[in-house]
Structures are given as C-alpha cells and as structure tokens.
C-alpha cells in the first residue's frame, strides 16, 4: 500500500507537487495520468525514494520511504538507459544479484515472451525492444510495488500491445500494486483498475475505472476531458 500525506515537492521556487494526499491499495493496476510536467514522474520518484518530499510524508506498506525502499519497490525510469558494457543477459544477471526478490526464471520467461535475444547489447536493440527489456527487469521482481514511468512512450503499437500483454501475464495482482504513468490512455484503458488524474501538481480525481463506466457511462478519456475542462 502506498500513502502520500500532505506531500509538497518544490524545485527551487516551482512547486512540482502541492499538498498531495493519495492512498493506493494493493491488488490493483493504477494509472497516473496528466499532461507533461504535471507531476507524474515526481510522484513516482518520491514513492521510489529517489526524491525527497519538501513537506509531508510518503509511506510504502507503512514504512517511511527512503532510497532504500528499493527493497520493496521496483522502479522503472522513463529514461532509455542501460550500462553499455552488459548484454541483455548480463543486465538481467546484474539485477538478479542486486535485488534478492528478483526471480531469474520469471525474467527468462518474460524475455521469451517478449522475444528478446539474451546475447545482444541493449544499445544494439531497437527502441521497442529496449522498452520490452525494461518490462522484463521490473516485472521479474516479486515485489509489492511496481512503478512504471511512461512505459509506452515513443513505442509503436505492436510493442505497446506486447507490453500490455506482458503486464496481464506477469503481474501478480493478489500481491502487487502497479502504478503506471502514461499519455497513451487508450492503450491501458482496459487494464486499469483505477485512474488518478494530476494537474499542476495537484490530484484532481481518483476513480475506480469500472465505476466511472457504470455510474457515468464514460471512459477515462471522456472523464479526463470533463475534469480538465
């Protein structure tokens, strides 16, 4: 479970997050949506302990977040960066050596599912395959919280679809909470349990997606148009 209590994050003078309160529960796939610069990435980094709140507190499973929450949080950056000297296989082995919950068998299963060549170097992979590799690395951990920052951004529909299928296949929704930031709402619309909308550093809505459809007969896109105005 993730809780943000009165969290404010300032960069110099600009507020990236302004007094945010958010509670996310386990067993759900949650989408964090909003425009560029609205505070999506900052939120994820705060939960991963890679940024520190200016005010307020962030907790994961009751534990106050520091950088070492990496123990129970798998964080996937939006950046397309790997150590250039490792092949795909060595990258996976390195991750397995650093995270004790990393499941090597699962990693190779996802790798096969994503049809990646273990011997190639990340820099020689296509952008799409590097995107797939990130999914391999973050989903192979048996970890309570998975944070995916823009996993679809800049990837073609085929790759996006394989990532969606990877999420459905390899997330254990009995035990895991997955938080995804994304622009490509249509891509994830059918796999989200909840959606959180963020604008200018404030949470402007948090809904169960099926409830939206049942009660208001609207999808996420319509809902966003409604609340963004």
């Amino acid at each position: 479970m993730i809780t943000l209590t009165n969290v404010t994050k300032k960069y110099s003078s600009k507020k990236a997050l302004d007094n945010v309160n958010l509670e996310l529960t386990v067993g759900k796939l949650i989408g964090l949506v909003g425009e560029n610069g609205s505070g999506k990435s900052t939120t994820l980094k705060l939960i991963a302990g890679l940024k520190h709140p200016t005010k307020g507190e962030v907790r994961v499973n009751g534990e106050l977040v520091t950088r070492r929450i990496a123990d129970s949080v798998s964080y996937l950056s939006e950046l397309d960066e790997y150590y250039s000297f490792f092949t795909v296989e060595k990258t996976i082995e390195f991750y397995a050596s650093q995270f004790k919950d990393f499941d090597l068998d699962k990693a190779y299963e996802i790798l096969k599912f994503m049809k990646l060549d273990p011997k190639s170097k990340p820099k020689h992979l296509s952008k799409g395959n590097r995107g797939r590799l990130k999914i391999v690395l973050s989903l192979a951990r048996n970890v309570p919280v998975i944070l995916l920052d823009e996993p679809f951004s800049g990837l073609d529909p085929m790759v996006r679809n394989s990532i969606v299928k990877g999420l459905i296949s390899f997330i254990d929704l009995e035990k895991q909470l997955v938080l995804i930031t994304t622009h490509e709402i249509r891509e994830v619309e059918s796999i989200l349990d909840e959606v959180v909308a963020i604008k200018d550093g404030s949470i402007i809505g948090h809904h169960n997606v099926e409830d939206l459809r049942e009660e208001k007969q609207i999808g996420i896109v319509d809902w966003m148009e409604e609340i963004y105005g």
Partner: peptide, 12 residues
Amino acid sequence: MADMFHSQKPIY
C-alpha cells in the same frame, strides 16, 4: 481494447 470493447460501459 478499442477494437473489442467500448469505453462507456463497464468492461466486466
């Protein structure tokens, strides 16, 4: 998604 379900009615 788009090809199989429409978004205004609960997917379940």
